[in-house]
Simulated assay, not measured.
Amino acid sequence: MTIERIINKRIHDLGGGFEVGRVLPFRARRMVGPFIFFDHLGPLELATGIPRELDVLPHPHIGLSTVTYLYSGQITHRDSLGFEQEIRPGEVNWMVAGSGITHSERLEYARTHGANIHGIQAWVALPTECEEITPSFHHHAGADLPEWEEAGVKGRLIAGEAEGLKSGVHVHSPLFYQHWEMDADARRSLTTAYPERAIYCARGKVEIGSTFLSAGQMAVLNEGRLADVVACQPSIVMVLGGEPLGQRYLLWNFVSSSKERLEQAKEDWKAGRMKLPDADNLEFVPFPED
């Protein structure tokens, strides 16, 4: 069989009414390669003057890289390293948390102009030897993200290496992450170069073998099996995967190979020992005690 399992997104409230579709982690499939978290943002139509309660307030991370990627809309990133960066469609915000970082995600553009927010936020776990590296932030656009076009398909390599292309995003373990825009009836095969792979339908409907994948569904593939993706209608498809990293534990926004390290991060946040963004330090997300 080509498909190991299908995962349906589950609605999750980030706070203030901003709901996302959470795909990873899933109880029966915690990770795909190094990807340990996968949230589908929107599509959400926001009018001018939206309340600030919809913003994602400053919060902490350790042991991972976050990657924010939008199809439409705009989000303002601010972090404890001093970076403030607008993320726009087709660009990449890649934040390496390492030993610890805090950031916020604000809807400043939508508040002023209105916007349709639609995109994906993923977390990529760091290999054990990199879990405590110095935090960093990188914004990528244009030539950093190789693009290609073939019969009915426009593609972009967001991160990693695949099919002879390499993204300008620096990654810490072997992986690939692609965005496909598919016309109706377009067909494309997925690389078999990595042992763990998944296909996510963000919009439209696609067929893999005799299995249909609708918007909000992820198909995790069996290792080495060829997978032809056929678009039943115009569709947005994300394909991702890589080499597995081994056991990772997840506590709130923290990822680590050590449960003790998670507890330390929890106590550091509760005690106020993690620096907040300079431009955004008047409020933050408290640790959820429940």
Rank of each mutant, 00 (worst) to 15 (best):
M1K: 09
M1A: 10
T2K: 05
I3W: 08
I3L: 08
I3V: 15
E4P: 05
I6S: 02
I6P: 01
N8I: 00
H12C: 06
L14A: 08
G17H: 12
V20L: 14
G21F: 05
R22D: 05
L24I: 06
L24G: 06
L24R: 08
P25S: 12
F26M: 00
F26Y: 14
F26V: 02
A28W: 00
M31S: 14
G33R: 09
P34S: 09
I36D: 00
I36F: 05
F37L: 14
H40N: 12
P43D: 08
L44K: 15
E45L: 13
E45M: 13
P51H: 07
D55L: 10
D55W: 05
V56K: 13
P60F: 02
I62Q: 09
G63A: 03
S65P: 00
S65D: 10
T66C: 04
V67F: 00
Y69R: 06
L70W: 06
L70V: 09
L70P: 13
H77G: 10
R78C: 13
L81R: 12
L81K: 11
L81E: 11
G90R: 01
G98W: 13
S99I: 02
S99L: 06
S104K: 08
S104N: 08
E105V: 12
R106G: 00
R106M: 15
Y109N: 07
A110F: 10
A110E: 09
T112D: 07
H113L: 04
A125H: 04
P127S: 11
E129Q: 11
E131A: 03
F137M: 12
H139V: 00
A141H: 10
D144N: 08
L145Y: 01
W148M: 01
E149G: 01
E149R: 12
E150L: 05
R156M: 08
R156L: 04
A159K: 05
A162I: 03
E163T: 00
L165F: 06
P174D: 14
L175I: 11
L175N: 03
H179M: 01
A184K: 15
D185R: 12
A186N: 07
R188V: 09
S189E: 02
L190M: 03
A193S: 12
Y194T: 06
A198H: 01
I199Q: 06
E207M: 14
I208D: 01
S210R: 14
F212W: 04
L213A: 10
S214I: 07
M218Y: 13
V220F: 04
E223K: 14
R225A: 12
L226S: 05
L226Q: 01
D228I: 01
D228P: 00
V230R: 15
C232G: 14
S235Q: 12
I236P: 00
I236K: 15
V237S: 04
G241A: 06
L245C: 07
Q247C: 05
N253P: 09
S256C: 06
S256V: 03
K259D: 01
E263Y: 08
K270V: 11
A271V: 04
G272A: 08
M274R: 03
K275N: 03
P277V: 09
A279Y: 03
L282Q: 13
P286W: 03
